[in-house]
Amino acid sequence: MRLLVNPSSVSPKLADLGLLIARVVLGVVLIAHGWQKFNEWTVAGTAESFAGMGVPLASATAAVATWVELIGGAMLVVGLLTPLAALCAAVVMLGAAVFVHLPNGLFVDQGGAELVLALFAGLVLLVVRGGGRASLDAALSRGSVRQPVAAG
């Protein structure tokens, strides 16, 4: 079977659009979940819930998950330190999968791992590809490139 689109032939603009969409959507989802932990459940309430689910070091884990989701999600939306923010969030999602969701199967309506695994997969792509040209990372790196001074 022949691929309809050869990944190496995708235009850079289209690839950057895909990275932008992935960054913003993943970031918004992370922010929503972090805000829920911070505002609705509170970090202490989240820690209590984590402890009940058998998550190790529940208080520390709840704080880390909350702040990685809130701050890391915002960093993804704007594309700031994208690989680092995505890596931190991917580790949180992997932990959620291993410690909470995988024992419940795949489907999210049964407490399964499908959401955290989908988020994990998208985050891994951002770790390896970065935020693309429509990101603060790219803008900052363009601004730091110095032109050689002509001898004269």
Rank of each mutant, 00 (worst) to 15 (best):
V77D: 02
A151T: 13
P83Q: 14
G54D: 06
I71C: 04
L14H: 04
I21A: 14
F107A: 11
V25Y: 03
A62F: 06
V29C: 00
S11E: 05
R146P: 00
A138H: 13
P103V: 11
V5N: 00
V124E: 01
G72R: 02
L119I: 10
G143A: 14
G52E: 06
A47C: 08
G131S: 03
G130Y: 10
D16V: 07
P83C: 12
T61N: 09
Q36K: 09
L119F: 15
A134L: 15
M53K: 13
L3A: 13
T42D: 00
S144H: 05
F107W: 15
Q110V: 02
S8E: 12
A121Q: 02
V92N: 01
L119G: 10
G34V: 12
P12I: 13
M75T: 00
G54L: 10
A86R: 08
A151R: 11
G132M: 06
V43Y: 04
L117F: 07
L123H: 01
P12G: 06
V5R: 02
A58I: 10
V29L: 14
V10W: 04
L115C: 04
S141C: 05
V43P: 03
G34F: 10
S141R: 14
N104R: 08
L115D: 02
L76G: 01
P83K: 13
G122A: 07
T46S: 06
S144E: 11
S8P: 01
A121F: 12
T66N: 05
A62Y: 05
F38K: 08
R2D: 11
Q110D: 12
H101T: 06
L123A: 08
E48M: 13
R146F: 03
A113R: 10
A62V: 11
G72E: 04
V43S: 05
N104H: 14
L87N: 03
L30P: 00
S141I: 09
P103S: 10
V64L: 14
V116D: 00
A90F: 09
A151L: 12
S49T: 14
A74I: 12
W67E: 09
